[in-house]
């Protein structure tokens, strides 16, 4: 299957009694960005480590770029790049030294490794780092150099494991820009993240992972639609009136969520305009003051919490 870059069928991996991967299936089309979304401990990192030949799975058929990760790990390694959770760089050496070192270990030859290092430093805005050791880099610079190191051979498949964890907003934006620029080049990207916004921003398709298996799969829009269409958010001036407002408004109480801290009530709607005018009128008649009334699509947060069966965190006990 030439247009599939990653195939995972029934992957299992146990650490002692804990099942990190529990029959995980995944198929990633060539040239796409595929988000793997899940909470901490869902098995994302284990999946990335298995796919990048760092970890041997207990069972399952796992192919990357057309090669089996266990029996043809060398062929896989020629074709992949990895940006792990922690910087995989030689902290004592400078940026150029790192890239040249990795280039040589990819067997580019001394001259080609040097040229490639220059190209990548330029592309990631690291040309003027001089001899400075990576140890002294800022978080964003380190991440960019790490990403550059993952791209030395223009890999067919790139794994990103929580690429922006621990970065400030500026560092995050830098990494996102860099990832977007890759996608045009035909690289397949597997992005493991716990940030819904990140998956929403970068991924063509998303697999939601929980307890070592995929619990939902689709585009961001499909996943949002699956959670149940549009919602209306009403923010009141006085949190004490939330209960009265819920009783007053024409919604099925089962779908209503209340957040006292934010003085917010949120409910699913079918007819957008009728719901909007109905809410405004009902509130006015009852003399309940609203600060904001808005229609919106569900966020990936809601999708995620809905799918992983843990939406108690959003719902406030009445």
């Amino acid at each position: 299957m030439a247009d599939t870059a990653i195939t995972v069928e029934g992957a299992h991996k146990k650490y002692g009694e804990k099942k990190a991967l529990d029959g995980l299936d995944l198929r990633v089309a060539r040239g796409t960005v595929h988000g793997v979304l899940g909470p901490n401990g869902a098995g994302k990192t284990t999946l990335v480590r298995v796919l990048s030949t760092l970890l041997r799975p207990d069972s399952g058929r796992i192919e990357v770029a057309g090669h089996d990760v266990v029996t043809e790990s060398r062929a896989v390694r020629v074709r992949i790049g990895l940006l792990g959770q922690h910087a995989a760089l030689d902290e004592e050496l400078g940026g150029r030294q790192n890239l040249e070192l990795f280039g040589r270990l990819y067997h580019l030859g001394a001259r080609h490794a040097r040229v490639r290092a220059d190209e990548l430093l330029e592309r990631f805005g690291l040309t003027d780092t001089g001899r400075k050791a990576v140890r002294q880099y800022s978080g964003g610079m380190r991440r960019r150099l790490d990403l550059a190191a993952s791209l030395i051979t223009d890999p067919e498949v790139l794994f990103l494991d929580e690429p922006t964890t621990g970065l400030d907003p500026r560092g995050r934006a830098e990494v996102w820009t860099a990832v977007r620029s890759l996608v045009g080049g035909g690289t397949t990207v597997l992005l493991a993240t716990q940030y819904l916004e990140e998956a929403d921003q970068l991924a063509d398709r998303i697999s939601v992972v929980d307890a070592g298996r995929v619990v939902a799969d689709g585009t961001a829009d499909e996943l949002k639609a699956a959670t149940g269409g549009d919602r209306i958010d009403v923010v009141l001036r006085d949190a004490g009136q939330l209960g009265a407002a819920v009783a007053l408004l024409p919604f099925d109480p089962a779908g209503v969520r209340v957040d006292t801290d934010r003085r917010l009530l949120s409910a699913p709607v079918t007819d957008r305009m009728a719901a909007l005018s109905g809410v405004v009128r009902a509130l006015q008649e009852a003399g309940i003051e609203a600060e904001d009334v808005a229609l919106r699509r569900p966020t990936l947060d809601e999708v995620f919490l809905h799918l992983t069966g843990d939406d108690r965190r959003v719902k406030e006990p009445a």
């Binding site: 990048s52 020629v78 792990g84 922690h86």
Partner: peptide, 17 residues
């Protein structure tokens, strides 16, 4: 204990190098 060992291990380099 450094992350760099992970990079070495995902590269097509000789194992014992």
């Amino acid at each position: 204990n450094k992350g760099v060992i992970d990079r070495f291990r995902t590269m097509p380099m000789a194992n014992g190098a």
